[in-house]
Design a protein around this nucleic acid. Structure first.
Lengths: 210, 210
DNA sequence: TCACAAACCTACCGAACGGTAGGAAGAAGC
DNA sequence: GCTTCTTCCTACCGTTCGGTAGGTTTGTGA
């Protein structure tokens, strides 16, 4: 029965995500997961090779979904500024709706190698995701939309880092807003420095907030 | 014997830091720590109440040292820009020299409540440290050094977040430079947007890199 | 109707966990 | 010489860990 298979498997994945997000990898026992999923331990080992495989599946899905969202969002903007706002908005929305997954992903990123099971290739996926942003920035430098005094990597690091800082802040302080207006503010703060100044004679460049 | 006391205690602290940084809180066993410190388990419990107390001591020292460094660095600058460069440089230097402690501190920040022992008041110390930066930014807004279009919290979030992003990047990718030139670049990127534009008629505001 | 395979179970394994009881070693004071 | 205190030890406690052996249930195709 396909639905039953997927059902139990998804139940285990959801339970594992909940437990890993609450207690970390080492702090979560397989017993915790199967109890939450209302199945037994051998059932989990029927669907997943081991505890590590379960974790890897979750982390990989987080990075892949972020990558997909960024690509999709970038097509919805014509200028670099529009693209950035779309990307940040998409990732903010996703992060709001998947806080536990984001927590697991960031905890994985800042965990030491020995803390996690070997073979979690999160660095490659992180780099791939960053390089997508980097490619947009490089294009922005070529078209003259961005200030050529800055290095492309430094700029990409700026937006990408700032974006992630907001996501992380939302993880630590849920009251921290994570919506389109916030995305616009972040892009505005970034671009007002990064964008090549267009010789505004009276000294006030385009700015949104009154 | 005072030196012997401090010696064994420091040995345990150093070993605990090393193990916690490598394997996380839950992933580190007390046996690991005492083996690394070349003492036995009861010796550890002679100096520390429990595994949690050991961890708390380490995390608290990291945040307190960062706070002290920021305060001290701020006195070494006259303008806001100088202060920011000094602060970032000081924290970058410290982070380079204490990577394991930084790793533990950040891992703690992004860990879930249940992952760590209760009573780790890292949020209060995080807030205190952020508010110090926030106070500098508010002063910068009052003196007109910063663009009043932005919210003080948003701006403080910008620099503080950007600074921490670089520290985190250095944790993940040690080849990522973390020195005074980097600090200057970060402040430059931040201020070129956040600083009130000084009506440069030819459109090029002060910028450092040629 | 019956063989078969997928789905899921109870019950258990050896190992490692955090923490402790109780004492040995050695210097200090008398 | 004897007591006392600090420092650190061996040996062990009960519990939980990740993982498995071996079997039962259940729907399916012939």
């Amino acid at each position: 029965m396909n639905t039953a298979i997927a059902d139990t498997q998804q139940q285990i994945l959801a339970a594992a995500l909940h437990r890993f997000a609450s207690c970390g990898y080492a702090g979560t026992s397989v017993q915790d997961i199967v109890d939450t999923a209302r199945v037994t331990k051998p059932t989990l080992y029927y669907y997943f090779a081991n505890k590590a495989g379960l974790y890897q599946a979750l982390v990989a899905s987080a990075h892949d979904e972020r990558f997909r969202l960024m690509q999709e969002a970038a097509t919805r903007g014509d200028t670099l500024e529009e693209q950035l706002v779309e990307i940040l908005t998409a990732l903010f929305d996703y992060s709001r709706g998947h806080r536990e997954l984001m927590r697991v992903a960031f905890a994985t990123a800042f965990a030491s190698p020995d803390e996690l099971p070997e073979g979690v290739d999160y660095t490659a996926k992180c780099e791939r995701n960053f390089e997508f942003m980097h490619s947009l920035i490089k294009k922005g430098l070529q078209t003259g939309a961005l200030d050529g005094h800055f290095d492309s990597k430094e700029l990409a690091f700026g937006v990408y880092g700032l974006m992630n800082v907001y996501v992380m802040a939302h993880l630590m302080m849920p009251e921290c807003k994570l919506d389109r207006p916030t995305a616009k503010q972040v892009v505005d703060l970034f671009l007002s420095g990064a964008a090549a100044k267009k010789t505004a004679p009276n000294g006030t460049a385009k700015r949104r907030k009154p």
